[in-house]
Nucleic acid binder design. Structure first.
Lengths: 213, 213
DNA sequence: CGGTGTGAAGCCTTTCACAGCA
DNA sequence: TGCTGTGAAAGGCTTCACACCG
């Protein structure tokens, strides 16, 4: 369920405030969803709440992190160290819980060897070896659009089974490989779409709404 | 409809190859969706296809770009010029069609005045004036989580009606303001979730699937 | 024939509403 | 009394299947 990470973050913040128990309503508010949804979602994990009281924050945190696989350590490779790749490499925030960037790879020979944070950029020729040796299961693609599919094919062949694609291209992967995409241009175009409708909404109603990701 | 940008990109690529006509099936393949969906989506824009032939690429491009508001020019402000903000500022790709970054804003006084690409970083105090004067309707937030809600409130008060939030925080906006979020940590956690299920999928079926954005 | 446009069926998600338990 | 857990209803999106047209 794609909302678990939202609950997880909300619970983390709650735990920091040393609140030990939380209601579905409060959790819903923090996560930006509705209370019934929270209860239904959590009920899939089992019955961790106490009627009349709410959910135990620590216990729920533990259960969700187990469910999300955050108790494990996931080595990650970033392919394509341009503007975005570099920013992602420097991003403090997934090092936090479970995700560890263990390799930076780029096709440009001039970049190879350059340090970014604590890692040095490695050549794309060695991608297969890197993925295999370091047991990488998750790859982040930040390459140009034209290279995305080829890189995806290579990392999948080398053993990667989850891809997060930042390249502005549709890529296809074999069954059994998870693929998620983050596309800046598309997000902006969607906003533009709603934006346009706001001005022309002089007469009649038409709700611009909050198009969630 | 959130798939229009996908079709748009696919059509652009098709047009570059000087193909003048395209079937729903081919377009579906390029966009990574199914053909019935393409036809249904396009039918909402009107009947632009020719039975037995397909869609006219140029005409369809024109109609979609009009629908998406890409014929307009959208001034954009980026707030928070850290790793990510800087990468976004340097990102060639939305300058391409309709989106023009006209201001970079940061709360850190030491950053103010520093050039990033063709723009200089401006202080967050002037956010209101900047948004109003430059008629900015779209704001990209790349601030730390704690600052996100406050910045959102300020840009909305100043006239912004669309926000693209990269900060790892749930923010709320008044009705009528569009909000989309891109959250790296959440994307990775979702991949982790499916990843976990792949290993434990020794017995029985359980499809990891392609969880789309 | 080939491929669009579209009713209708199917499926999945969200929401409601309330029984039941601490 | 308060809040969870959950059947049932509602709604929306996707897919099917085929009539219809160039």
């Amino acid at each position: 369920m794609a909302r678990l990470p939202l609950y997880y973050r909300a619970l983390l913040e709650t735990a920091e405030r040393e609140v030990s128990t939380i209601s579905s309503e409060r959790l819903a508010e923090l996560a930006g969803v509705n209370a019934a949804k929270v209860r239904k979602d959590l009920s899939y994990l089992g019955s961790y709440g106490t009627r009349g009281v709410g959910y135990d924050v620590e216990y729920l945190l533990h259960e969700i992190s187990r469910e999300l696989g955050l108790t494990r350590d996931w080595p990650v490779v970033i392919v394509g160290i341009g503007n975005l790749g570099r920013a992602l490499a420097n991003y403090r925030g997934f090092g936090a819980r479970g995700f560890r960037v263990v390799a930076l790879v780029d096709a440009n020979p001039e970049l190879v060897g350059h340090p970014v944070g604590e890692l040095a950029i490695e050549p794309v020729d060695e991608l297969d070896r890197i993925v295999a040796e370091r047991e990488i299961a998750i790859a982040i693609l930040a390459t140009p659009a034209v290279a995305a599919q080829e890189v995806a094919d290579r990392v999948v062949a080398a053993g990667v089974t989850s891809i997060l694609n930042f390249a502005p291209a549709v890529i296809s992967v074999p069954e059994g490989v998870s693929l998620r995409k983050v596309d800046l241009a598309i997000e902006l175009q969607i906003l533009s779409f709603y934006q346009l409708r706001k001005f022309s909404a002089a007469a009649g109603e038409s709700r611009p709404a909050e198009a969630a990701s």
